[in-house]
């Protein structure tokens, strides 16, 4: 390793700060906006100095927005709950279906195995809008439109391929001999899967869970078409802030802050499982 000169260190810190500012500034700005009134947000030139207000958050929690044209109902809290239900259930279902499937694809060679895996991946190739119209008609006929079940089902298009392909890679990285050793110790294949394969693929499972949760949480277009107001997640619900009396920037900013919180919390929580290297040193490479 070369020793860093002090000049090099200063340049490094300077560049890192610039990159950090560039990426974090919009988030910081939205955070500030959520404590401002619409007038403050829209004034020109914008200013960093203002009198903070919790009004935007009050509106979101109370669900009532007073405007010049009357009182509007805001379903933000319900939307947030819908987002939680949809994202959590979709990811949970995908984990239950995807992890065993990923294991099968990683460990067993069977007829059409690769084709099936690729087909599942190809679900992500089609532009959602292309699929949505026929899907909406089918769902109408099946009575699945505007139901959690229907939405969770459609969300599998997002979450399942992601979990399947990421976790499969991690399973493939585990030395088969470790599993063979456990079988020879006297354990059946399911116990081997449960006690060896899953714990060793944990970093991959954590990464896949986090990613698919973010994708499911951020999805907009599926719910826009397939759900009406009472089943809509926050992404679609935010449209309600475009009102007859103007766009409610303050409430949009506050709802962004609130709806980012669960993903952020999950990311921080999952971080410790994302640390790789657990399997290092077990097998001589």
């Amino acid at each position: 390793m070369q020793r860093q000169t002090s000049l090099g260190r200063v340049v490094r810190v300077g560049l890192l700060t610039m990159v950090g500012l560039f990426f974090l500034f919009p988030i910081f700005w939205v955070f500030l906006m959520s404590f401002q009134t619409n007038q403050e947000i829209l004034r020109i030139p914008p200013s960093l100095f203002f009198e903070p207000t919790l009004h935007n958050y009050q509106v979101l929690f109370s669900g009532r927005l007073e405007t010049q044209t009357g009182t509007l109902e805001v379903r933000f809290m319900q939307n947030l709950m819908n987002s939680v239900i949809l994202a959590t259930s979709s990811v949970a279902l995908s984990l239950v279906l995807g992890i065993p499937a990923a294991y099968a694809f990683a460990r067993f060679k069977f007829r059409l195995g690769e084709d099936i895996a690729f087909t599942l991946l190809s679900f992500r190739f089609a532009p959602p809008l292309l699929v949505l119209l026929p899907l909406a008609i089918y769902f109408q006929q099946l009575g699945l439109i505007n139901t959690y079940t229907g939405l969770i089902w459609v969300y599998q298009l997002i979450t399942l391929p992601l979990i399947l392909w990421i976790v499969r890679g991690y399973f493939e990285d585990i030395s088969e001999d470790i599993e063979h050793a456990y079988r020879i110790d006297g354990n059946g294949w399911f116990k081997t899967f449960w006690k060896i394969a899953i714990p060793l693929a944990k970093p991959g499972i954590a990464a896949a869970t986090l990613l698919s949760f973010i994708f499911a949480w951020n999805n907009f277009v599926f719910a826009l078409i397939l759900a009406s107001a009472d089943k809509q997640p926050v992404t679609v619900g935010a449209l309600a802030f475009v009102t007859a009396s103007g766009i409610q920037y303050g409430q949009i900013a506050a709802s962004i802050v609130l709806s980012v919180t669960p993903t952020l919390a999950l990311a921080l929580y999952a971080q410790r499982y994302l640390v790789e290297g657990l399997s290092l040193g077990a097998v001589k490479g």
Partner: peptide, 20 residues
């Protein structure tokens, strides 16, 4: 027979220890 039914012990060339 499945490996778990054979009552044998095996040491692998790459050790194959359970890392966790």
């Amino acid at each position: 027979l499945e490996p778990e039914q054979r009552n044998i012990g095996m040491a692998f060339q790459n050790f194959a220890l359970y890392p966790h």
